[in-house]
Amino acid sequence: MSTGQYWLVIGGVLFVILNTAAGLIWLERRALALWQDRYGPNRAGPFGLFIVLADTIKLFFKEDWIPPFADKIVFVFAPAVVVASVLMSFTIIPFAPNVMVADLNIGLLFFLAMSSMGVYSIVLGGWASNNKYALLGAMRGASQMISYEVFMGLSLMGVVVLSGTFNLREIVEAQRGGWYILPQLIGFFIFLVAGIAETHRLPFDIPEAESELVAGFHSEYSGMKFGMFFIGEYMGITLISSMVVTLYFGGWLGPAFLPPVIWFVLKTFVFIMLFILLRASMPRPRYDQLMEYGWKILFPLSLLNLMVTAAIKLLL
C-alpha cells in the first residue's frame, strides 16, 4: 500500500465512522419508533434524514456551559477521551483484506487497552462535574466497566486460542474454514453482553439511568461536549458491532458476489440493529443485579469457555 492510499484509507475510515455515528442517531430513533408503533422523525428531509443535520447544528449552537463549581480542565478533557479512545480502536479493524489503518500484531490487546481507556471519560466527566448525580453515575460506570472488561478480555481469548494470533486480519483469515460463532457460541454471547455493558447502552446504561440519576455522568454537560459523549456512544456501538463481526462472524468473508467491504458493512449493520432492538425491548437491571450477573455468572462461564476451548484445541 502506497502512502497516498494509506492516507486515503485513514480519511475514508474516519469519514465513514463519524458519519455512521451521526446517522445512527437518525437510525436509532426511526428503529425505536418502528418497534414502538410510532413513526419517529419524519419531517425534515426525506424520511426525516435531515434531523441529523438539525441535531448537529443545534448541538453546535447551544450554549457550551461549564459549571462554575466544576474542575474546568478535567471537565473539558473528559468528553475528548471517549471519542479519542473509540476512534483509536477503529484503527485495528480490518474492513476488507487491505483496508485497515494499522495491521498490529497485538490488535486484540490494543482494542482491549483502548476500551479500558474509555472508562476515564465517564469517571473524569462525573468527577469534574462536581454534582452528586454525576458522581454516582461515574462510580457506577467505573465499577461496571472495570468488571465487565475482565471477562470481555477472557471471552476473546477463546478466539485467540482457536486462531493462535492477536492480529485481527489473521483472525479473519483463520475463519475461512468456518466462522467462530459455532465453536465459540458462549464466547460470542459473553462478548456481546460485555460489549453492551462496555458501551453503557441500554439495558446496561446504569451510569446514565435517566430515570434515577438525571443523566448520570453527563448531567452537567451541554452543547458539543455532550455531543461528544453522544457521538462516542454511537461510535462505541459501531465498534462493538464490527468487533463482533470480525471475531465471530468472519469479518469481510462472504460469498463472492458482493465485495468484501459490503459484506463487512452488512454484517455490522445487523448487529447495530440488534443493539437498538435490545434497547427497545429490555428493562434496565438494578445495579447490584448487574454486578452479580457479571461476576457470578458471566465470569465463571467465560473462564470455563476458555478452559474447554483450550482443552479441545490441545486434544485435536
Partner: peptide
Amino acid sequence: PFMAALEVIIYAGAIMVLIIF
C-alpha cells in the same frame, strides 16, 4: 508490543481507574 498493551490495560486501564475511583 505485548508489554506495551499490558501496560495500558493493567496499569493505565485498571489500577489507575481503581485509584481514581
